[in-house]
Design a protein around this nucleic acid. Sequence first.
DNA 1: GAGCGAAGCGGACTACAGTCCGGTCATGGA
DNA 2: TCCATGACCGGACTGTAGTCCGCTTCGCTC
Lengths: 194, 194
Amino acid sequence: MLPVVGAPAPERADAARNRVRVLEAAAALHAEGGVAALTTDAVAARAGVGKGTIYRRFTDKGGLAAALLDERGRRLQERMLTGPPPLGPGAPAADRLAAFVVAYVEHTVGSLDLVLLSETATPGGRLAKPVYPFWRRHVEVLLEEAGAPAPRTRAEALLAALAAEQLHGWTVADGRAVDALASELADVARALAR
Amino acid sequence: MLPVVGAPAPERADAARNRVRVLEAAAALHAEGGVAALTTDAVAARAGVGKGTIYRRFTDKGGLAAALLDERGRRLQERMLTGPPPLGPGAPAADRLAAFVVAYVEHTVGSLDLVLLSETATPGGRLAKPVYPFWRRHVEVLLEEAGAPAPRTRAEALLAALAAEQLHGWTVADGRAVDALASELADVARALAR
DNA sequence: GAGCGAAGCGGACTACAGTCCGGTCATGGA
DNA sequence: TCCATGACCGGACTGTAGTCCGCTTCGCTC
């Protein structure tokens, strides 16, 4: 068969089966014992798979955590792309941006331990996550629409402020209320959009 | 002798000697082989000290890296507190803030590998560094002076955008020029000050 | 359905961070 | 000077991430 140019490499049947097994095992372990239970040994044993298989499929522990978050993240992405305004299309850029910040904060805080793991398991993990370019592009486009200078830099700066580590500091260490925090951060986004 | 209330616990002579030894060994290893050479085993061996000693004194590897950066950091702190404007006192708050961002970016990029280590060795490391409250307070005060809303949140958001991980992504992964980047980030600071 | 190249697999292995606790020695008081 | 105390020390030990490479399985082709 001719390879389809640009298509993701097709996955062998055994590989696909093992990916599902690993994700199910990881989800179960996480449900039972939190992130502390998510050791690569435990996941491999529970999935009935070798450690090498996990690393081949998910690069590292952070990648596994990111994969666990995938479905939830995709739901948010859909709301951003095709949902009702102000998060979805139709509202002014600054309003969409503010709505994104609130939704992103809630999304992240809702799975804080996994997101934290996915972003801090390896240095630079946050920027290396497959979804990162999606968030960045979305924010960049909105900033550009709003007429802000240096939209790319500002987009990354804004996302850095929404890093799991920072949100963890605010909501857990400092004990701040998520709603109030999200609203202040939405304000930050508006400030950057001008 | 009566303990002095509020004073830092005095350090025993052998403890002080060992701290110096560890720092010298770490600095030498770093000079020779970069951060990769900074394993706790190697530092302990070179310092002629047990690993327990390192952990007693520096908490973890990130703390050791932070201690190595201490002197350089103190120089920047002095320039901020008593140096000439616009970094030091005397200039309008927004200008001081912009000058801080530029100086901080240069400071961080100048020792990027060590700062990265100090901030990412442990999750939440950036917020746990002893100097963090200093930077945060400085930015917060300037934002407040400039009349910005939610100065504390904005200060932390700004510092998050200046995290070593992010600066590493921009300057190394993306290959961006430090000067141009610093100036765009100074602009971000000005936007937050309004 | 047999052959074959390549992708995938697994688990022993390495390297490293951080802990633990029995022994040691600095320090201040008598 | 000598002693009691507890801070300090060191290095063996544990737990975990991530690597490596010989073996297996897949799936395409003929």
